[in-house]
Every structure is written in C-alpha cells, then in structure tokens.
Design a protein around this nucleic acid. Structure first.
Lengths: 190, 190
DNA sequence: AGAAAGCCTTGTTTTAGGTCAATGCACAGC
DNA sequence: GCTGTGCATTGACCTAAAACAAGGCTTTCT
C-alpha cells in the first residue's frame, strides 16, 4: 500500500532507502466505503490525501442543489480542498468516495514538518504542483474557450480512462455540462 | 527593480543576505512596450517571468479569431505558459504587454539549476504554487458553477484592482464572457 | 423475486448569453 | 484640429445548452 506512494514519488525525485522508511511515519492510512465522506463543506481541510486505490470526487453544491465536480482523483492522485488546506480557513468542497477507497493521509502539521525535515519532499511537491498548475491552466482554457463538444472531445483525449471509471453524469459535471448534453454529444459523435 | 522580487520572496521564505545577492545572477531583466509580445503561440516557453512593473496578459486565439484570456499578471505576479515551460513542449499561449512593462526573466535551465543550488527557492516556489493552485481551483469552480453575474461579482470582490487596471473586454474574456454581457451586468448591478 | 434507486437516453420547451449592428466617446497620431 | 483606432454601450435577434419531462435499462437492497 505504502509502496505505491513511494513509487509515485520516485517518479519525480530520488529518495534514499532511509528517507522512504522515515516518510512512512508522516502518513496514516484510511479506508472509505463508497459514498462515505472524506471531507464536508464548511470543515477545515486538515489532510492531504493520496489515493492508493479507488476513486473520489471533490465538488461543491450550489444554491440549486446541483453538484459541481471540482476534481476526480484515483490511484496515484492527491486530493484536498487546496484552498482550505493551505490557508487553514474553512473550505467549500465536499470530497467523497465513488468507489471503496484506500487512502494515505498527511495532516497539515505533518506536511509542514515534512517540508522542513526532508527538503527532497518539498522538491517533490514543487514538481507535483508544476504539473498540476499546467493541467489546471488547460482546464481553465477549455472552460472559457471551448464549446460543449470541444470540451468533451478534449477530455476523452486527455483522460480516456476517465470515461470507463466514472458515471457519465459526473464527467458532465466536471465539464460544466448537463448529463443530457453529454448524452447528445456522444450520440452525435458516433 | 530587483528588490521587488526579493521582497516578494521574503514574504514566503527567509533569504540570507548572501542568497539574495547570489539570486540576482539567475535572472535577466527586460522591458517591453505596450503591445509587444513576450511569448507567441507555438514557441517553447523558455522563461518564467516576474512582473516588476506594468501588466501583461496571456491568452489563446481560437478558430474564430477570438482572444481568450488565460491570465492577467501585474506587479508581483509570475507569468509563463506553465505547460510549455515545465514540459519543454511547444505552447499554445501568447503573452503580451498591455502596458509598458519591466520584467525579470529566469530561463528553464537557470530555474532548474536554482532548484538544485538553493533549496530555499524550491521551497519558495512550492509555496507560491500552493497559493496558485488554490486560486486556480476557485476559478475553475466559478467557471463551471456560476452564471455570468456571479462570476462578475466574484471577480470584483476578489480582485477589485483589476477593474481599474485593465480594459473591460479583457476582464470579460478572463471570465469567459463577451464584453456586451459584462456591460449589461454592470448596468443591472447599479 | 420484487421494489427501489441510479443512470442514460430522447423529446420538447425555455433561457442565458452570444452574435450582429449601430452609436458615441476618448485618446493618439499626423 | 481632424482622423483613425480602441473601447463601452445599447438594441434586436439567435442559438447552444439548460430545464423539464418521460421512459427504459441496470444494479442494489430487502
């Protein structure tokens, strides 16, 4: 379980055997069943979560009661309400499991301590965030510059797995579309 | 000029006097007049740019010839085509000056070297990116969950300066709206 | 097995925001 | 002082996608 995290880290930075062992102490593991919450709106996001197994979604509920997907994360991804985690203020995101999940959690305190104790991990997160920023930029552009069809086309190109991994109405919400619209686009495209 | 960068860095991490001096060697300065390009679509983004003075915009042009604003940056902000800068692949963004600007540039090579030479700077960028991720997340949510009026309301709350700093049609594009729509919203709101 | 929930599809109607077009203003350049 | 360009506003019209509604297919629960 823990080796998946280590492996993931080693793709970006070089850890010594000793570091890999010490790293373990900063994390706690957790399992959630499908539909269980990891975080609820209004709470402070105290943990950053590495997904070892399964899929989670983060989202906000708007005034109309509609779920708006912020992010979908599965094996090898990190999940958090980043605004809340980094500022310590109350968050707006809900995070819950859309399949049974296995997680590794690091608290804000442990994260801060880790950044001091192991510079290589600060480096790791910097590199992780670099990629993440680039991805979010692309998503922002697709939101403001693309129409429904282009958005859908881009996502199935960039994340072909996603379609098989999550129900279509979540994909729709991730794109800022309704399930009906996605259904019609799929029909049109084949 | 350089002290603005140092000052900005000191808000996030502690630099020794020696580090602050050495840091200077990694950067080159550059001035651009209004309307000049810093980066054009199809180029590899070789530099990350700190804005000392003035305002720049990054954007893509879509098939209809319409400019879609990715980001607006002024004093104290960093600009780049992050995807291109971090991957080394060709980028899609244009960046140009909407006022005369003074910039500090760091090349990808110097950036990578800096991350090795001065761990404190890797730390700085990690912290910078943390904030940046949180902001981009909020922008993504406002894109998918808000209507035109809510988007406009959020931006004038979060970045009240922006309205005075840039022409309205750029603000509109940043929000993924047309200038006409923003004009009508403003009228309605007062 | 039967009921219920969750999900996808398809059809119809509605609407927010885009598109197109015209006008006016302010400023820069000659 | 005029001319051209860039920008904001307003009105009329249009369209992409949302909303609403109904039906059918799976999967899950009892």
């Amino acid at each position: 379980m823990f080796d998946i995290l280590i492996q993931h880290i080693q793709e970006k930075v070089q850890l010594t055997a000793d570091e890999a062992v010490r790293l373990q102490d900063y994390f706690t593991s957790k399992k959630l069943r499908k539909r269980q919450y990891l975080l609820q709106e209004g709470e402070v996001c105290k943990y950053m979560t590495f997904v070892v197994q399964g899929v989670l979604k983060s989202y906000v509920i708007d005034e109309r009661g509609i779920e708006n997907i912020n992010f979908i994360g599965w094996e090898g991804w990190w999940m958090a309400d980043s605004y809340s985690f980094f500022t310590g203020e109350k968050g707006v995101l809900n995070i819950d499991a859309i399949e049974d999940v296995e997680l590794l959690l690091i608290s804000k305190e442990q994260y801060d301590q880790l950044m001091i104790d192991m510079p290589v991990m600060s480096n790791y997160f910097r590199i992780l965030y670099e990629r993440s920023l680039a991805n979010k930029d692309r998503r922002i552009l697709s939101n403001i510059a693309y129409n429904a069809e282009e958005k859908y086309a881009q996502i199935i190109t960039c994340y072909p797995d996603l379609v098989n991994r999550i129900p279509q109405h979540l994909l729709a919400s991730y794109l800022g579309l309704t399930p009906e619209t996605v259904s019609r686009i799929k029909k049109k495209m084949k």
